[in-house]
Design a protein around this nucleic acid. Structure first.
Length: 235
DNA sequence: GCGACAG
DNA sequence: ATCTTGTCGC
């Protein structure tokens, strides 16, 4: 498949073409560096409070991206933007892709790997937003969601860090991970240049006592805090 | 045809 | 994602 003419088509058919092309790629697998500290990023976007259902194109969106070195945040970027479309399962990239990409592109320095609140290979065309964003930005990514999109698998044990595979047909696309004892496990997705094992390893290393991995939690906090400081909406 | 369906 | 109410725990 060729490079897409645009990373973020504005129509569902165009997006499906890009997703199918990206899913067929076989990028060089990424592994955490062993000679220096691992930089883990997090990105998150939120929408206006009170918005009902799937929303629609033009909705204001607040998006934040951060870079962490261990428990130290070394970079952050927050911006406001507009949604490209309503939320539709399988087409999250149309709603959040452009805004998320713009925020991560403005992040300096970039992390080695970015956590994204979306699926990766767990997708009808094997190219969820976490996978798609990584391809668009040439950045390894790992997806983190509350639940699978299509994949299924048994829950892991209660011990912190416990993981169990999530399958889509014959492919392991991610894992349930007990990020905190006594809490519902999160879904960790293989993304761009990351397989399920590496994805789980990255999330384990990003944990800091809370259910949500630190970089993702901080990006979410920043996005929501910025929203709270906006009286009416983005200019 | 019907239900399910990342955020 | 956002909303709501209640509950458990530090």
């Amino acid at each position: 498949m060729d490079l897409p003419g645009t990373w973020w088509p504005e129509d569902a058919d165009g997006l499906a073409v890009v997703q199918t092309a990206l899913a067929a790629r076989t990028p060089e697998p990424w592994r955490p560096p062993v000679d220096r500290p691992l930089l883990i990023g997090g990105s998150f976007c939120c929408f206006p409070r009170g918005i009902e259902g799937p929303g629609g194109p033009g909705d204001p969106v607040w998006v934040a991206a951060v870079t962490y070195a261990g428990r130290r945040r070394i970079a952050r970027h927050v911006r406001t933007d507009t949604a490209g479309a309503a939320y539709v399962a399988g087409s999250l990239a149309m709603r959040e892709g452009p805004a998320l990409a713009a925020a991560v592109e403005a992040l300096e320095p970039r992390p080695d790997v970015m956590l994204v609140d979306a699926t990766g290979r767990d997708h009808p065309r094997r190219a969820g937003l976490a996978y798609h964003l990584g391809a668009a930005l040439d950045l390894p990514t790992v997806g983190v969601t509350h639940r699978p999109l299509l994949a299924s698998g048994e829950w892991p044990g209660e011990e912190e860090g416990a993981a169990s595979p999530l399958w889509l047909a014959e492919e392991q696309v991610g894992a349930w991970v007990r990020t905190r004892r006594g809490r519902r496990p999160l879904v960790v997705h293989a993304g761009w240049r990351t397989d399920p094992d590496v994805a789980v390893e990255v999330v384990r290393r990003a944990l800091a006592g809370t259910r949500t991995p630190l970089p993702l939690r901080e990006a979410r906090r920043l996005a929501r805090r910025t929203r709270a400081q906006t009286p009416v909406g983005p200019r």
